[in-house]
Computed example of a mutant assay.
Amino acid sequence: MSPPDTTTLRQTLLDWYDAHARTLPWRAARGAVKRTDPYRVWLSEVMLQQTTVPHATPYFERFIARWPTVNDLAAVEDGDLMAAWAGLGYYARARNLKACARAVAGDHGGVFPDTEAGLLALPGVGAYTAAAVAAIAFDRPANVVDGNVERVVSRLFAVQTPLPAARPELKRLAGTLVADDRPGDWAQALMDLGSTVCRPKSPLCLMCPVSGFCAARAEGQPDLYPIKAAKAARPHRQGIAWVLRDGLGRVALVRRPDKGLLGGMVGLPTGDWREGEPDATPPVAADWVDAGAVEHVFTHFSLTLGVRVAQGSGDFLWTSEAEALSALPTVFAKALIRACG
């Protein structure tokens, strides 16, 4: 089933967006003549991948205050960037951010390309981010499909194919709604609708401006969509984090290898994380005490991280515990807090 009148559907949703658009720090003010700065759009879209708006917003504001232009971001030291990113997760995004900023600054004179093709040629920029920047910053008629848009489209058309196999179909259907008129606002209207009204659970159909076009609502079961395939069990791994203090209020940290999980970040010393018995080889000889364990979930596996505490010395990055907590990825911050408890 398809919406009966695409033109009316689009106008109805855009009218709703004009009245109800979210105020977000990376968006141009409502009614502004000037388009949103592509740097702000790009930075926000990278941060929002796998991250909620409330969690990403303070990071975005700190980044913009510290590095207001893409040239400023391109010049930052790797360690400073990774420390500023700590807590946002999915740290490959920070490495991609750095590579893209340096490419824009070095190869494009600090000016973002204004087409999807040009944006896709930048390092670390995928199809979604290229479409989002092209539409929102440059008003190109790009097909911007994130999780919110997938949910809205799956309900509008009552798509029977389960996710993730449905994604090509959902993208094609979303493309049938894109037009030359206000493509940036259209992309953001769909995102806002999915975020605030067409929610994953208990969608607010009585408040939805396009409920009359929705095939899932006509069926009476909108919250069944999008249909999802059964998830495979997430593997579980174990490891140990070693919290070594020097008696001066400092804790020992290490810089993780550039490649791999949490690459380039500072962290607590730890061995391999693996299924079965964890690697229990301490980084230095000391009187290690068991301080319990913390749980953490990554995209592809869950982790039980044992915490061992001792006092000693060695060749580490010695940092005050307060500074360590602000710079560590969440999994290591959890471990350090456990050690303090």
Rank of each mutant, 00 (worst) to 15 (best):
A127T: 01
A229Y: 14
F332G: 06
A218Q: 15
A229I: 12
L156Y: 04
V197N: 09
W242I: 14
G271S: 01
A92D: 09
A158G: 02
M265T: 15
A324K: 03
T299P: 08
T176R: 09
D185C: 02
N96W: 07
P278I: 02
D315N: 09
N71G: 10
L73M: 08
T270H: 14
I240V: 15
E116Y: 00
F63E: 14
G126D: 06
V243A: 14
W67K: 13
G267I: 08
L206W: 04
F316E: 04
T6P: 04
R62L: 14
L14R: 10
T7I: 15
T176S: 11
L303H: 08
R255K: 06
F157G: 06
P25G: 10
M191T: 05
D139F: 03
P203E: 09
I240K: 13
H20E: 05
L73R: 05
T8S: 15
P222S: 08
E295P: 02
A86V: 13
V284L: 12
R62V: 15
P235H: 14
A174W: 01
W42K: 06
P209T: 08
T196C: 00
L204E: 03
G126M: 03
A121W: 00
G79M: 14
P168D: 00
D80T: 15
A130W: 02
P123F: 11
A28L: 03
